[in-house]
Structures are given as structure tokens and as C-alpha cells.
């Protein structure tokens, strides 16, 4: 079988597929795919984005508890430092939230 006949076979197969395609997938439009992709993207964005801040803030809180156990008289200072550290650790979580909102409400 030479090259031209293979190309011809492929062309007929593609033409047949193109004829069948609209019937098989007529229910799905481009907007549907776009919305579905937006929802999946936002879900993954927030879901995976929440892992890091959660663990990081827990570390900070744990160390603060440990330190307060050792020197309770500095509790105010330690709690303040803990909250400041956690706020910085929170930023990536907020980035995820903002990007998820952007995907859901601005881009979709």
C-alpha cells in the first residue's frame, strides 16, 4: 500500500467521523465545556491550594503553644507573633481563593 492510498483511506475515515460526530456530541456545546473546565479548575485551585497554608499555620500554632508552655508570661507577645506568621502563611490560601473566584465569575 503506497502513501497516497493511505492518505485517501484516512481522508474517508475522517469524513465519516465528521459526519457521525455532530449526532454523537450534539448535547455538548463550547460553553458547556468552558463552564465545566472552569468549575474543575476552580475546584482544583482551591483544593490543592489549601493544603500548604493549613499545615504551615498548624506548625506556627504548635510552636506558639510550646513556647507559651515554657514561658507563659510572654503569652501576649507569642500570640501576636503567631498570628502575624499565620497571616503571612495564609497569603497563598487567599491567592487560591482569589484565583478560584476569578475563574468562576470573571473568566467563565
Amino acid at each position: 500500500m503506497d502513501l497516497s492510498s493511505i492518505i485517501m483511506l484516512m481522508q474517508t475515515a475522517m469524513a465519516q467521523a465528521a459526519e457521525q460526530l455532530p449526532e454523537a456530541t450534539s448535547a455538548i456545546t463550547g460553553d458547556d465545556i468552558r463552564l465545566a473546565g472552569a468549575m474543575l479548575g476552580a475546584g482544583m485551585c482551591m483544593g490543592f491550594g489549601a493544603i500548604g497554608p493549613g499545615i504551615g499555620q498548624g506548625f506556627a500554632a504548635g510552636k506558639a503553644c510550646e513556647a507559651i508552655g515554657r514561658s507563659p508570661e510572654n503569652a501576649g507577645l507569642l500570640t501576636r507573633t503567631m498570628l502575624m506568621g499565620q497571616a503571612v502563611s495564609e497569603t497563598t490560601g487567599i491567592y487560591s481563593l482569589v484565583v478560584a473566584f476569578l475563574i468562576l465569575f470573571v473568566l467563565s
Binding site: G43, G47, G54, G62
Partner: peptide, 29 residues
């Protein structure tokens, strides 16, 4: 699927993190 992924994977970090915080809290108390 998107709602499941968001709430499912989103719970991994907070669950582990709160656990670590409480671990040190228990030692201190």
C-alpha cells in the same frame, strides 16, 4: 467532581495543621 476535589483536598492541610497545633498544646498543658 469539582466540588468533591475542592472540599476533599482542601481538608488535608487544615486537618494535619490543626493536629500539629494541638499536639504541642497537649504537651504544654
Amino acid at each position: 467532581v469539582a466540588a468533591g476535589v475542592a472540599v476533599g483536598f482542601g481538608g488535608i492541610g487544615p486537618g494535619i495543621g490543626s493536629g500539629i497545633a494541638a499536639e504541642r498544646g497537649c504537651s504544654a498543658s
